[in-house]
């Protein structure tokens, strides 16, 4: 067993320096690596390129890094919930590459599967297609999209073991497994870290080979963006 355990977020991100390209897991605020984001905010690394489906909200998640102007470029599919993001984007302070969500996920997948590029119909005939190679298969056009090349992938899992194996919970899984596979260095923070052997190999979502550093996170806020409920039936 190769032990992947590090002491915490500070140690896990210690070699992330200015100008790095990061992947950050999560959908909205669901399944985001809260501990590592907070550590990146404290460390004040700058000029980051962040690949993440969303950009957090103004005062939580990646929004905290945006507020400190740590992010040079965002690669995302949807940024609707962040006013500061939209302001920086419209004013040109922040470079933004908006790409279709499935393209984002599949470019991660390609990196983790060792494939240089994918072909997808998403964005054909739109401004997303500008400058991209188009190939026709069986009468339908597809865009060639390259696999991501990220220095670090930072993900959040529910459980993990000392060998780096990960299990995700519910829809906080989202982009985390595909990003975990895609980073040159993958950092996983987990709610519960157990000894190797305690997780059933049949139930592992991400094999430890993809994970380089793992630690048990603390003080998860797990903020809910849209709390929607129905009244209890009496």
């Amino acid at each position: 067993m190769i032990n992947k355990v590090v002491s915490g977020a500070e140690e896990a991100i210690k070699d992330i320096s200015d100008g790095a390209t990061l992947m950050l897991g999560g959908f909205g605020l669901c399944g985001i690596p809260e501990n590592c984001i907070n550590a990146l905010v404290s460390k004040q690394v700058k000029n980051l390129t962040c690949i993440s489906n969303n950009a957090g909200v103004d005062d939580f998640g990646i929004g905290l890094m945006l507020k400190q102007r740590q992010v040079k470029k965002m690669i995302s599919s949807y940024v609707g919930e962040n006013a500061e993001f939209e302001r920086q984007l419209l004013s040109g302070e922040l470079e933004v590459d908006l790409i279709p969500q499935g393209t984002l996920a599949t470019r991660c997948l390609a990196a983790g599967y060792g494939m240089p590029a994918i072909f997808t119909p998403a964005g054909v005939g739109t401004e997303v297609a500008e400058g991209k190679e188009v190939r026709n298969f069986d009468g339908k056009d597809y865009l060639m999209e390259y696999a991501f090349d990220a220095d670090f992938a930072i993900v959040k899992a529910w459980k993990g073991d000392t060998a780096g194996n990960l299990i995700f919970r519910s829809t906080s899984r989202n982009f985390n497994p595909v990003m975990a596979m895609a980073g040159k260095v993958t950092i996983a923070e987990v709610e519960e870290l157990v000894e190797a052997g305690e997780l059933d190999p049949d139930y592992i979502h991400t094999p430890g080979i993809y994970v380089h550093r793992i630690f048990q996170g603390k003080d998860y806020e797990k903020r809910i963006e849209q709390r929607t409920v129905r009244k209890s039936e009496v």
């Binding site: 399944g31 829809t171 989202n174 709390r227």
Partner: peptide
Amino acid sequence: NGLLGMGPFPFEGEEDADLINAGKQT
């Protein structure tokens, strides 16, 4: 965001931050 079989909103007090739809609703 990764779910087949989306059910109704949870009862008050049973919201789960890990279980949302594409609109980020519990």
